[in-house]
Simulated scan of single mutants.
Amino acid sequence: MTIRHVVAWKLAAEDAETRAEHAAEVARRIQALVGVVPSIRSLSIGPNMAYADVNGDVALVADFDDLAGLEAYQVHPAHQEVVGYVRSVVASRISVDFEV
Rank of each mutant, 00 (worst) to 15 (best):
T18R: 15
Q80H: 02
N48S: 14
L60I: 09
A24Y: 00
G46Q: 05
V75Q: 10
D97N: 08
P47Y: 00
Q80A: 15
V75G: 05
D15K: 10
F64E: 11
P77A: 14
G46R: 10
S95I: 04
V100G: 09
I30H: 03
I94M: 11
V86F: 00
V26N: 08
V36R: 01
A62C: 05
A52F: 14
V58E: 01
A50T: 15
P77N: 12
A52Q: 08
H76C: 12
E14T: 15
H22A: 10
V83N: 00
D15A: 11
A16Q: 12
V58F: 01
V7C: 03
D57H: 15
P77F: 06
M1P: 14
I94L: 14
E25M: 06
A20N: 07
L33R: 00
A27H: 00
F64A: 02
L60D: 08
V86P: 00
H79M: 08
A62D: 04
I30K: 04
W9C: 05
S95N: 09
H5I: 03
N55R: 13
S95H: 06
A52T: 11
D15I: 09
E17S: 12
N55M: 09
I3L: 11
M49C: 09
G84T: 13
V89I: 11
V36A: 01
D63L: 02
V58P: 05
F64G: 07
R28I: 03
